[in-house]
Design a protein around this nucleic acid. Sequence first.
DNA 1: CGGCGCCATGGGAACGTTACCGCGATTAAA
DNA 2: TTTAATCGCGGTAACGTTCCCATGGCGCCG
Lengths: 351, 351
Amino acid sequence: MSMSRNRRPTIVDVAELAGVSKSTAARALTGSTNITDETRERVVRAASAVGYERNHLAVGMRSGRSGMLGLVMPDIANPFWADVARGAQDRAAQAGMSLLVFSSDWDPDVEATHLQTLRRARVDGAIINPVSDSFDDLDRFGLPCVFIGSSAERFPDVSSVGSDIAQAVRLGLDRLVQMGHPAPALILGPKSRLARARFLRAVHEHCVERDVDPGILDIEDGEYTVEGGREAMKRLMARARVGHLAVFAANDMMALGAMMAVRDAGLDCPRDVSIIGFDGIPSGEFAWPGLTTVAKPGRDIGERAVEGLFDEIEHKPEHRRIYMPCRLIERGSLADLSTHAPKRIAGAGRV
Amino acid sequence: MSMSRNRRPTIVDVAELAGVSKSTAARALTGSTNITDETRERVVRAASAVGYERNHLAVGMRSGRSGMLGLVMPDIANPFWADVARGAQDRAAQAGMSLLVFSSDWDPDVEATHLQTLRRARVDGAIINPVSDSFDDLDRFGLPCVFIGSSAERFPDVSSVGSDIAQAVRLGLDRLVQMGHPAPALILGPKSRLARARFLRAVHEHCVERDVDPGILDIEDGEYTVEGGREAMKRLMARARVGHLAVFAANDMMALGAMMAVRDAGLDCPRDVSIIGFDGIPSGEFAWPGLTTVAKPGRDIGERAVEGLFDEIEHKPEHRRIYMPCRLIERGSLADLSTHAPKRIAGAGRV
DNA sequence: CGGCGCCATGGGAACGTTACCGCGATTAAA
DNA sequence: TTTAATCGCGGTAACGTTCCCATGGCGCCG
């Protein structure tokens, strides 16, 4: 018995036990052709007898494929990104691949470090929510890449997957109009973020289609946080405005912050103020009232990103940018003013 | 120029450019001794010139250390587990290691598949929230392991990290007593879950210390979900009980569900019913009222698990089970009855 | 001044796997 | 029946790295 207990069995151990060469053992185990059924079965039996498990490091070295994918996101603890990670992980596992997960915390330096780690680990491809503005060394040796998120649009020559902001905004605005809020105020993110511009552009297009002057919309900016939304909502309420106030927040966290500000001001949502968010984070379900929002398909985005990455790895550059449709989740933070004040352009009167 | 653009540069490319042997190049790059500063600098310069990046697959194969850790959790999209993952990932990155993340969905078969993948990937160790009851093949070849979560207590001979349920329960009950709720009702998980027994035992111990008969506590069981908590709360309210009702839920989701049930019944939290949860999920912050809860240190648990795993990998079996302290987060779902009804054992009267 | 030892370097093997090639045997085709 | 083709199998090289050992040069000490 040459098999020591502390050493992991290799394919030669299997071959010896089966009485064949390691070449034959490899053929049997890889499911290759040119092998007798009887021999294959003998090898397979020997493999399970010694507890053989193929060494993926060695396979990866020989074949140049590590069987691993990289995922670099701002923060895995953020519910949206966790959802994306889950989708990516499921799709990768389905294809027999593993996922290396990293959080960049919106820091370009951290991101660069993680990317270097990914390249060193010889991942077969990477899914990245880009923070940095330049990726010179990213594709220097052709690491297949798919970007995710709206910041990915800064890189038109890299395949990417994101939510369809135009469709999402349309979804939200249509519902607002249906409920009798044709000209909602907007709470947007910082001007530096690309997503802000996308969101605003979609609003403009929608207004134009409905012959509404986008200029009449109240707009407040804030950080993409609860506190940012709270402050923005305070400023919004401070503006002299009569009647019911409807708000479309570009982010659920901000929407929840806005809800808090409404409560702080002694008002009631949805009676005095209607709020609709954008993201679909779980917290919106437990707020009171439940937050009506346009949900991004985080999991689907993760899945599609992996699928796109497979195309990229196989050098099938079919698509460049995929927009995943969002869906409306109604929970009760929108007042229905349509019966009381049908078809008015400006803000409707208080119920 | 023999360097093709599509081939990743190896250490021999570096060595050739620097005019040394690959052994010397390796010495220079690994920071080993026995090398001239001048030679080292020349090699380092050559390495960056050709864009050399050490192949971790090859390193892992040669050294037996892949530089990767595995993390198997029920669901990365669950906020608590996402937090754990974040902590583990940060601590691993800090040590220069990568994290392979998997979600088992509480399915033993899926878990087994992921563990096999981990072993094949030759991870240096794994952090696992165990679902299965048996792990025969887990340590057959000595894969270093640290378990996390309360289900880990089923495996006393495996190092594990979990939250200190006894301390958490004490924290919650002490606060309840301070607020004038000495004998709260309990909403617990299914009887099959180990965490339920731990929670209940801690409650019993605390009651005994305070000379309260644990038998007088109302108890309802439910699934660890919003719906489970909602149903349990309904049953709790259906019991003939006068005065203010205080509830300690063993899980934040259930606590939020209980809050919904209270609202559905036309009652008010905290005026009519006090609710305290256990977990510390973000959603509790946005509920109305904000959910007072005992928060598990998810991120810390992840970090400590990685640290424990390092000890395990280096065969330093110091500790076996680490209990991480929880902390109380007060948000307003507890009514303060202490001034109105100080020091009463049974349920206090309505305010 | 000579021998010994240290130190910088180079050569080669090994980690575990798979691809390629060669060889013998069995079978099909002429 | 003879030849060619196919098929099953074994040997060997190669992936990129690090470690061990050998070698040669130089300095130090006796």
